[in-house]
Amino acid sequence: MDRIKKIFRLIHVSLWALFTLLVVLQLRGETNPHWLTLTVGVVASATGVFYSHFYLLTHYTGTRKGYWLRLAAIWLIGPLPFLLFHYKDFSLSNPFIGYYCMTLVTLVPIFIFLGWLARVTETLVINTIKKEQLEKQAVEAELYYLKSQINPHFLFNTLNNIHTLVYKQAPAAPEAVMHLASLMRYMIYESNAATVPLARELDYLRDYVSLQQLRYKNSPIVDLQISGNATACRIAPLLFIHLLENAYKHSPARLEPGDLKVCVAVQEDTLTFSVQNPIGQQATSPLEGPGGIGLPNVRKRLALLYPEQHSLTIQNTGHTFTVNLTIHGLHAPAHERKAQLLHH
């Protein structure tokens, strides 16, 4: 906000310098011997009227009657600086009252209007910026809240899995703890950024798959396919984990190799992420089980992070459940992304 006020001060100084230059050129062009004193008088009256009204509108919060009385005082006193510097040029044919009335109906109303226009313009710009800042803070707070839901939700499910391994005294338990430590390191230290490289997010998913694979004795049950240049774009962190987590949660207890299919495709500035799983015998529908926060969380984050830049579709064939997520415009400049975010 201080930077905006400095810009407005610079605009004020520049415009008054330009106005003074125009007055000097006008008076010198008329070969007026008193051009210097007349210039000082015109500029003094103009700035006096302008800033008197400008700050009256800024600071006065009294009654309407009080405002009009102060405005009338500005109007009547406004010509005096000009007349003070113009006094030496008075003659019988140009009496004091004539110059006073001329200034009263020409110069004064113009700069009263300009003072009002400047005040309205600055107020509009500053209020707009303040509104955008408040909206940005609200969006950031909601995103922080949504992201904070991920950590305890993910940790709760994973610790249950590790508890099972420890209870059975499985040799894979120490390895599971190491995988969890790696995942938590990413979630705590790296996912605080607004975006992360897509390749790093995919590494996080691979770690998660490796941790879950410890529960199964079969060959890898996840068929992960990646196409395109994953290093060429960035993505909001922790955006896919709920979808993959729910694929595990709502699949049958026994899974065969390749039953879970995860596909990530990057084409120009478009990313497509899909996950498919067989449907288990749960009473609740996938992604919508009691206490689940997966799909609502993903939808809210997408609406905030990628408004009008994404599509999320769900397909249930009765045997398989497929979620397709497409995000467009991953290479949009940061200022355009921020403008869209604030607008929505």
Rank of each mutant, 00 (worst) to 15 (best):
P109C: 13
K65G: 12
L107S: 02
E30N: 12
D89T: 07
L80V: 10
Y55S: 04
S45F: 00
F96K: 03
G48R: 00
H86T: 11
C101Y: 13
T47Y: 14
Y51F: 00
L117Y: 02
L92R: 11
V43K: 01
G78S: 12
L84E: 02
G66M: 04
G66F: 00
F82V: 10
T103Y: 07
I77Y: 09
P81K: 11
K88F: 15
Y100Q: 09
G41F: 09
G66N: 01
L117H: 01
Y60A: 01
C101L: 15
T103R: 08
T58R: 15
Y99R: 07
L56A: 06
L69T: 06
R70T: 03
T20D: 02
L36P: 04
T37C: 08
W116C: 14
I97Y: 13
Y55P: 04
F82T: 09
T20P: 04
V49N: 00
T61Q: 13
L107T: 08
T103K: 04
H86C: 11
A72P: 03
L117K: 00
P79M: 09
H86P: 08
T39M: 04
S93W: 06
T39N: 05
S52K: 11
L92E: 12
T47R: 14
T121S: 11
W75I: 02
W35S: 08
L114E: 08
G115W: 10
L104R: 00
L27T: 06
L84V: 08
G78Q: 13
S91Q: 10
A73K: 01
W116Q: 15
T106D: 02
L56E: 05
F19N: 00
V105Y: 13
L80E: 06
T61I: 10
Y51Q: 02
F113S: 09
L57K: 04
W68S: 09
K88A: 15
G29S: 11
H53M: 15
G62H: 04
A72R: 10
L25N: 02
Y99H: 12
L71Q: 01
K65Q: 13
V40P: 07
T58W: 15
V125C: 10
Q26T: 14
H53A: 12
N94A: 03
L71Y: 07
S52R: 10
P95H: 01
F111D: 07
T121G: 05
Y55E: 07
G62T: 04
L80F: 09
G115A: 10
R28F: 06
L92M: 11
S52L: 15
E30Q: 14
H53I: 15
G62A: 00
T103C: 08
L56D: 06
T63W: 11
L76P: 01
V120W: 12
V23R: 10
L76A: 04
Y67W: 06
T39E: 00
C101S: 09
F82K: 12
W75A: 06
W68I: 09
Y60S: 02
V49R: 01
T103E: 09
V125D: 13
N94K: 07
W116G: 14
A118H: 14
G98I: 14
T39F: 05
Y51W: 03
V43F: 01
P33R: 03
D89W: 05
Q26S: 10
